[in-house]
């Protein structure tokens, strides 16, 4: 009973927030409520027994996306006052109709599929049954980095392409990212330096823990990469990292390192193991850990650079 009450409250919160996000008159409100929406989604994932997703959503969905949205909001605001924009051209009743149709379709698909007799043989059951040969104990990590590693490889490529495309479209540094870079100065609030001195090592530690523990419990490269990216956002905002238009050699290597290493191990699998993207027997755990470490950096760095709106970052001594 109490579980139902909690789920109902959660659903009510999600729907109320979603409505405020799309319909609120004040744009800033929509942006902030979207971040809250991401946090509630994280709680929902936890309720649906998906702790891996809860971690990723809290760090990426609410954290990084929120930072990106707020910095874009500021860019829209800075030129002139908020522009309410012209009224909608689409009649409201038609919009309500289409929305109701889509909602009924999505909800209907879910309702019907849930009602069907569950099949005996599913990919998930197969994955769970063969967990022992995957080299890791967390089934989600096993699917991501062994059984369906092609998806993960493609995903890192998508992230890299998004970064390249953003570099093509973005303007000079002054107009990209969270605004002009300011050197951390004497006028900086007194609490910022102690916060960074405390948070930076803690975050690196947490990311390493997430990466390592992803083998047997919720966590992994995605969550670790997102946590590291959050640290990068903090350092960029406080002026500890200076944006540059060109990435350094180390940054270039890190950006492509995940894809190159993953592809190389995957191609080698065609010769040494049974198929492309298969790991040789007995080496699964070591190779997955190696790939995940490269992926963590290959996920964190593009995310920070996308936020920073720059091609590279340099350490700036205060």
């Amino acid at each position: 009973m109490t579980e139902w009450a909690f789920d109902a409250l959660l659903a009510g919160g999600l729907l109320g927030l979603a409505w405020q996000i799309v319909a609120s008159r004040v744009l800033f409100r929509s942006v902030v409520l979207f971040i809250v929406f991401g946090l509630l989604m994280a709680v929902t994932w936890a309720r649906l027994h998906a702790p891996d997703l809860a971690l990723a959503e809290a760090a990426i969905g609410a954290g990084i996306t929120g930072a990106l949205l707020l910095s874009a909001y500021r860019a829209f605001l800075s030129r002139r006052g908020t522009d309410p924009g012209p009224p909608p051209v689409f009649p409201r009743w038609a919009a309500v109709g289409v929305a109701a149709l889509v909602g009924a379709l999505v909800g209907g698909i879910g309702w019907v599929v849930v009602g069907l007799e569950p099949p005996e043989q599913t990919a998930g059951r197969e994955a769970l049954a063969h967990l022992a040969i995957s080299g890791v104990e967390n089934p989600v990590t096993a699917v991501l980095l062994n059984f369906r590693s092609i998806d993960t490889l493609s995903e890192v490529v998508v992230l890299f392409v998004a970064f390249l495309a953003a570099r093509v479209v973005a303007q000079d540094l002054a107009h990209a990212g969270p605004g002009d870079w300011l050197r951390a100065s004497r006028n900086e609030p007194v609490l910022v330096q102690p916060l960074i001195a405390f948070i930076a090592p803690m975050t690196v530690l947490a990311a390493g823990y997430l990466l390592w523990s992803g083998e047997h419990q919720p966590g992994g490269a995605f969550q670790a990469g997102a946590v590291l990216a959050a640290l990068g956002v903090l350092l960029r905002l406080t002026g500890r990292l200076r944006p540059t238009s060109e990435p350094s050699l180390a940054e270039r290597l890190s950006l492509v390192g995940g894809v190159v290493l993953f592809s190389a191990i995957g191609l080698a699998g065609a010769g040494v193991a049974s198929a492309v993207l298969a790991y040789p027997e007995g080496w699964e755990y070591e190779l997955i850990l190696l790939v995940e470490t490269a992926l963590t950096i290959a996920i964190a760095l593009p995310l920070v650079l996308l936020f920073s709106g720059s091609g590279g970052l340099r350490r700036e001594v205060r």
């Binding site: 729907l15 799309v22 038609a94 289409v98 109701a100 909602g103 999505v106 909800g107 879910g110």
Partner: peptide, 17 residues
């Protein structure tokens, strides 16, 4: 929760339009 997903998608499409 699949019904909630349906309602969410409806709200999102309404906003998008």
């Amino acid at each position: 929760f699949s019904l909630v997903a349906g309602a969410l998608s409806g709200i999102a499409i309404y906003g998008l339009i």
